[in-house]
Every structure is written in structure tokens, then in C-alpha cells.
Design a protein around this nucleic acid. Structure first.
Length: 518
RNA sequence: GGUCGGUUCGUAUAACGGUUAGUACUCAAGAUUCUCAAUCUUGCAAUAGGGGUUCGAUUCCCCUACCGACUACCA
């Protein structure tokens, strides 16, 4: 039976979504869309201790910014997403709201002999663990130790049944079978085998808050929501055998989803996975959107740093996946068409900030002048620049578009097209602002001021160069002298471009100013 | 420590037994230009080590090294 593809991204609202998380969501989304399936966002908030206010909203907003919109799930306001005309038998999508669902499944496992009640307190277990570690050993709650602990397997029935009633801090643990080899298939890694004798009895459900742990909630929800493929981070690979066993215990193996475990994003330098600290240290964002935590600590975001969402999505897609061709630039739509789990790389990908910038630069070049102008206008305003027509700004943008990586670069590249330079680069001035140069340059300035006919680059450029050449003046020196007056440095746009853009009067003003200054 | 996963230029990756080991980013040099940028050209640079299997291994197997994840009443 061919089932409709349904995948989910299941973040835990314990903080802002890391770019690695966005990549996981993206791969899920691409996989689903390519197959005409559903992409679901499920919030895994079963850990009341680590809940962070605002995190869920952040996650939804971040995905939204990337163009990753769910077919089912919750939106930023916490509403159930309604697509098309379909109703959602799978709601709610927040595990805390699904609380009543889980207990029966956990109890069913106990009844069927796949799980048991455990009454050891966290303190008792902590002490045991410390004790074993002191002796150089590792404590695991499992087949070798469970009979020596306090649970419904080791205690007389009457006794544990009483504890079940009187205490509210017990748990339900999975009874890991002994010495069984679990054979698993991963869509990315292939065949994986693990012997259950190395595994412990994981807690599935907690009486204290009447909530399941990840493992139970995950399996139950994936089953109930008819998930067909689970694409998640590599950190889950070690618990895959447990999940297989859980599907088996529930009798759900027929509809068990297929699994794919993605490798992690690594630090650009040194060892370990990419962390929040790396961004601060190396100067790039680790999060899609800016985030301010409860302590007021700010983490920068790709959006706020000036990355286009298309660029961000593109660079993320290429971190651990490749199309098998030499194409590097992909729109979301193209990614949907080209994506495949078979071409996802097994090894961890080291993030490279330079390449990230390159992507943005490419996307900036593809943008329309009009769109870039829309983005640049507010920046100009924030610089206190007013009084320039949109037409003028568009002309500026046209000239500098291919020189920039971010829209914010526009100002650094060509602020002199809006305001006269106040300072002059000393080194450049020393090199070009010499008498033998500027006497000539001032004559050229007079030529420009006296230029008749329509004042455009096309009209001016030829005659201007011709004038300098015919006099056999040194082109480079003269031009750079003028540039110094116009730009404040000996680098920048062509003289004809600058002059025709700022106009004769402003040109004259800058020439007068530099005469008195240098 | 144990379990599982991984290892191709600095980085991202291609080559799914046969290539002068390709491409992109970065970096360097040159060309071009009134400068800078852009652009174009060229260059630097890799199969972790050791054993097998094979006519032939980047590719398959084993060992070692290194990296990573997991080893919570966290996800």
C-alpha cells in the first residue's frame, strides 16, 4: 500500500532554532514537497523544565522567513494551520496539549510486558550513578541492574501496586530485551545493527508531570500522525533501536516510518559541532533570526545581518547535500525538484562563513534594481540622507549592485554619491594630490564644468578622455586627483559616472572644497 | 570507558573498481580599466595510516589513528 508522504519537523521550544535545525526542517520540507506530500510541524514541549517563552514563535517565524511553511502544525500565534479545505484529525500539534493521549499507550506497553513501573527516585539513581562512577564503572538502568532496583519487575505485586497509588513520582520504563540484534535501515547510512544488551531501559512516561519522554511521544505521535519518513539529526541514531523496538511492541511495524539521520553541522575551525559561541567568536550568525535571551544576551541572525532568505536556504541546502551536477544556485522550487536523500552526505559538514557570503552576493546580483532600492531607501534614511529621488537611488544601485555582498554594503561602497567626503584617505592624497597633478586636474574640472550638451555618462565620458589624451596628460594621475576630490579616496566608480550622477553644481562644490583643504 | 556513526585540496563537495582525482569558495599571480571593485585567465592545494581482496582500489573488507553523537525522569 502506497501511503501519502508525510514528514514532520519536531523541534523542542528550548531556545532559538539553530541553523542546523533549519537545515533539518528544510530537508524534511524538500522531501515532502517533492513527493507531493505533507510537511508537519510538531512542537515537542514535553520538558516543562526547559521550556523557553518565545522559542516556539521564533521557530515558526524563522521557518516562515525561509519559505518553509507547514501543511499542518501551529503558526506563530499558536493556531493550527489550516491548508486547503482539509480538516486535521491529527491536531493538536503541541505535545503538551496531547498529554491525555500518551498514558494509555504507556500502560498498554506495561500490560503487554514490554514496559514496567519504576519507583526509584532521581536522587537514588543519581547516588547509584555516582557510586559506580567512583568505582570506574558506568551505571545503566537495564537488564543487568533492573532486578536490583525498585520496580514492578523486582518487587512483589502488592507492594508496587500500593506504591503506584500512593506515590506520584514513578515512571514507566521500557523493558529492553536481552541480547537481541536489532537490524535497522537508514535512508542515508544504510544498514545498521545494534545488540540490545548494550542498551538501557529508557523512561517512557513520567507520573510526576504525566508527560511522556521524547521516545514515547515521538513514536506515538509519528504513528498517529501517519508519518512516513523521519528525517532528523544524527544525535538520534543511538536511540533508533529503541524506536524500532517500540514500533514492534505496539504492533505498528507495518506502518513504521523509514528513518534518515542527518550529520551535524561542525565548527568552521577546531573541533566539535557548531555552537552559539562560534558565531560570536568568529563573527557570523548561527541563528536564522536575531534572538535575545532572558538575560538580555543578543545573538545575531542571518536575517538581521542582511542575508536574503533565498541565499540562506541555498547555502544550508548545499551543506551536506549536492545535486550531483555542478549547479550551485538553487531556488526553493529548484531544490524541491533536485533534492534526494541518496545524495545527502554522511559526514559532518563544517560551516564556512566565506562561502555563505558568496551565496548572498550571488543572490544580490540576481535581484532587481527596484527591489534593492526598496531595501536601500530605509538605510539611506537612517544615515540622515534625504532629498534624493527614487530614480536617483535606482541609478546608484545599478552602478554598485555587483560590487556588494549585502544591501548594507551600498553605503560603504558609494556614500559619496549622496554626501560629499569629509575626510580624505591620507595615503591616497599623498600619492596623487601633488601640484603637477592637480593643476592639470583642475583644468579637467573646468572642462567638465564647461561641458555643453546633455550631462550624461555616455555623452561626457568620450570627450573627457579625449580631452586628457589630446593634451597628453597622465590619465591615471589626473583621474585619481579628481576622484580624490569626489570620493575622498583613489578608489571608486568611474569619474564620468560620479560626475554625471552628482551633477555639475555638486561637482563644483567638491572641487572648491578640496582646493581649500589639501 | 562502552555503543553507534564518520574520515577526498584550508572549507563544501564530485568521481558509486579503471579519470592527468573534477568543481565551487578562499588565497596568489596575470589580463583589463582613469583607480577600486567586478570580469576573464592561470596557479597553489586532497584520497588519515597500515594490511588485505582484485589485473586494477578514493571506491570493497579488516586493524589502527583521529573526529563526532549518544550513554538523563533533555530533546
Amino acid at each position: 500500500m502506497e501511503r501519502k508522504t508525510r514528514v514532520r519537523f519536531a523541534p523542542s521550544p528550548t531556545g532559538p532554532l539553530h541553523m542546523g535545525g533549519v537545515r533539518t526542517a528544510l530537508y524534511n520540507y524538500l522531501f515532502a514537497k517533492q513527493r507531493g506530500g505533507d510537511f508537519i510541524i510538531r512542537i515537542e514541549d514535553t520538558d516543562s523544565q526547559r521550556f523557553v517563552p518565545g522559542a516556539e514563535k521564533y521557530i515558526i517565524e524563522a521557518l516562515n522567513w525561509c519559505g518553509i511553511v507547514p501543511d499542518e502544525g501551529v503558526d506563530a500565534e499558536g493556531r493550527v494551520v489550516e491548508t486547503a479545505s482539509e480538516r486535521h484529525p491529527h491536531a493538536p500539534y503541541r505535545q503538551s496539549q496531547r498529554k491525555p493521549i500518551y498514558r494509555q499507550y504507556a500502560e498498554q506497553l506495561v500490560a503487554d510486558g514490554f514496559a514496567y513501573y519504576a519507583f526509584d527516585t532521581a536522587e537514588e539513581l543519581g547516588a547509584k550513578r555516582a557510586e559506580m562512577e567512583a568505582a570506574g564503572q558506568t551505571f545503566i538502568y537495564g537488564q543487568t541492574t533492573r532486578m536490583g532496583l525498585r520496580n514492578s519487575l523486582s518487587m512483589p505485586e502488592a507492594e508496587w501496586k500500593e506504591l503506584l497509588e500512593t506515590r506520584t513520582d514513578w515512571t514507566i520504563r521500557f523493558k529492553m530485551p536481552e541480547n537481541r540484534v536489532v537490524k535497522m535501515e537508514d535512508l542515508i547510512r544504510g544498514h545498521v545493527e545494534v545488540n540490545t544488551s548494550t542498551l538501557d531501559d529508557k523512561v517512557l512516561w513520567k507520573r510526576a508531570d504525566e508527560l511522556p519522554t521524547y521516545h514515547l511521544a515521538n513514536i506515538v505521535d509519528d504513528h498517529l500522525m501517519e508519518i512516513t519518513e523521519v528525517i532528523r539529526g544524527e544525535e538520534w541514531l543511538p536511540s533508533l533501536p529503541l524506536h524500532y523496538l517500540l514500533y514492534e511492541a505496539f504492533g505498528w511495524t507495518e506502518t513504521q516510518p523509514r528513518f534518515a539521520h542527518l550529520s551535524l553541522l561542525l565548527k568552521p575551525d577546531g573541533k566539535g559541532k557548531l555552537s552559539k559561541r562560534d558565531g560570536d567568536r568568529l563573527g557570523f550568525p548561527v541563528f536564522p533570526l536575531r534572538w535575545v535571551n532572558a538575560e538580555g544576551e543578543v545573538s545575531r541572525g542571518y536575517r538581521e545581518d542582511g542575508y536574503f532568505p533565498e541565499a540562506f536556504v541555498n547555502l544550508l541546502a548545499m551543506l551536506g547535500w549536492n545535486p550531483g551536477t555542478e549547479q550551485e544556485l538553487f531556488s526553493l522550487e529548484e531544490l524541491i525538484g533536485a533534492f534526494s536523500l541518496e545524495r545527502v552526505v554522511k559526514s559532518g559538514a563544517r560551516f564556512n562563513a566565506e562561502k555563505a557570503k558568496w551565496y548572498n552576493k550571488e543572490y544580490l546580483r540576481k535581484k532587481s534594481v527596484s527591489e534593492l532600492t526598496d531595501l536601500y531607501m530605509p538605510i539611506l534614511e537612517s544615515k540622515g540622507v534625504t532629498g534624493f529621488s527614487r530614480d536617483y537611488v535606482e541609478k546608484v544601485v545599478t552602478l554598485i549592485q555587483e560590487r556588494a555582498t549585502f544591501v548594507a554594503d551600498f553605503w560603504d561602497i558609494a556614500s559619496y554619491l549622496f554626501v560629499a567626503p569629509k575626510t580624505f584617505v591620507e595615503k591616497d592624497a599623498a600619492k596623487f594630490w601633488k601640484e603637477e597633478n592637480y593643476t592639470l586636474a583642475l583644468k579637467v574640472a573646468d572642462f567638465i564644468l564647461g561641458f555643453e550638451g546633455e550631462f550624461t555618462k555616455e555623452n561626457l565620458e568620450g570627450p573627457l578622455e579625449e580631452y586628457i589624451r589630446s593634451n597628453e596628460w597622465p590619465m591615471g594621475k589626473v583621474m585619481n586627483c579628481l576622484r580624490l576630490a569626489l570620493v575622498g579616496a583613489s578608489s571608486g566608480l568611474g569619474i564620468a559616472d560620479i560626475v554625471t550622477l552628482i551633477g555639475k553644481e555638486e561637482f563644483a562644490r567638491r572641487i572648491e572644497y578640496i582646493k581649500t583643504t589639501l
